[in-house]
Design a protein around this nucleic acid. Sequence first.
DNA 1: AACAAGCGTCTTGTATACAAGAATGGCGTT
DNA 2: AACGCCATTCTTGTATACAAGACGCTTGTT
Lengths: 217, 217
Amino acid sequence: MRRAEALRDQLEQDIVTGHFRPGDRLDEQSLAARFGVSRTPIREALMQLASTGMVELQPRRGAFVASLTLQAVIERFEAMAALEGMCGALAARRITEAQRARLVAAHEQCVEATRNGCADTYYYANERFHRTIYEACHNHYLAEQAGQLHTLLKPYRRLQLRARHRVSQSLGEHAMIVEAIAAGDSAGAEHHLREHILIQGERLNDFISSFGTADVA
Amino acid sequence: MRRAEALRDQLEQDIVTGHFRPGDRLDEQSLAARFGVSRTPIREALMQLASTGMVELQPRRGAFVASLTLQAVIERFEAMAALEGMCGALAARRITEAQRARLVAAHEQCVEATRNGCADTYYYANERFHRTIYEACHNHYLAEQAGQLHTLLKPYRRLQLRARHRVSQSLGEHAMIVEAIAAGDSAGAEHHLREHILIQGERLNDFISSFGTADVA
DNA sequence: AACAAGCGTCTTGTATACAAGAATGGCGTT
DNA sequence: AACGCCATTCTTGTATACAAGACGCTTGTT
């Protein structure tokens, strides 16, 4: 594998896990020293991350971990609703038997995790749930785009889950989504998935607004 | 402006206008020599184009003008339908008076151009029509993504217009879109826009299939 | 004659060197 | 003492040099 790609993945991990936080400056020289490489592959990795929206490049100023305003996050939730809704619509028509089984399993694991109050397990099951839908739409490009946004919005999704009754509501939405997809109800799957995403944006908005902070970081 | 950005724009133009054709190899050294710069900014420009999908980077093999298979093009039309549909839905609720006027004007110019059989004028009016909708959704990110796909699919859209009766059909679709957006009919705008895009993919499929070529290039 | 293996060349990937713009600190002025 | 300007220094942007993998050609063998 090219070093630049390995570095990209490593940096992405560092950002997602919070080692680097939104707004942090990503100094090329320090990163190069830390990873024991030259600035060249570092720059390449940063540019790739910039193209996914995880990093913001300011000309002649350097790279920063993307710090999205509430407005920007909501915009992305709206776009995500469109993409994921389409995934659902297509999945309802194209899902394979094996994928359907995996979707149901992931959903049940979500239910189980909620019953046990196990936040981490819920988180990963939820991840599998959505990734399965992406896969089931049998549109590589769409799956890729949706997955990218999914990753980008990860931290904000975690946040909105802390809104009152959000988890149990979310489970109900998942149930309707599973049902619609299993029934081959394209329009229903799309509708429920879209609302499922849009609600997340709205709940996040509520949650942030109640703290009065403009920046989600 | 950084040289890399200027080079990216120039290369994009060269690809869109057909100076470089799908599948063409983009040799770093030749490009560097042609533009009188070193390979470094060339590489940067190529990576940026790769992130938009206009260029494909094969590790250790080099850069090629993206040559999408029919399957890949259809996937992108589906994704585009999702994004543009959402643009329409939001535009129906958020469009300003000025934007509405521009939309109507662009539509009328499309009608006019068709009546005169002026393909180029139609093309640019159609461009304005769609760009106005992107703008009217008042979601910068969504507009950006939709615009990027719009650019990427440009050559394939031109192709499907050659299908029988496609232009006049397209005009009818535009009319319904304008009407829905003007009426604030969010669901209607979304539906008509989505179908408008999906049909393009289908007509393209018909058109290509009737020639029996697997590659759209 | 056809195919495979090895070598040479060419291209990409990475490192280093150099240039140009931005930030910061000190000094001077008010 | 505070504000502004200039110089220094640090960082990014670009050029060049070097390394390593891929392709093609030649040559030897079957």
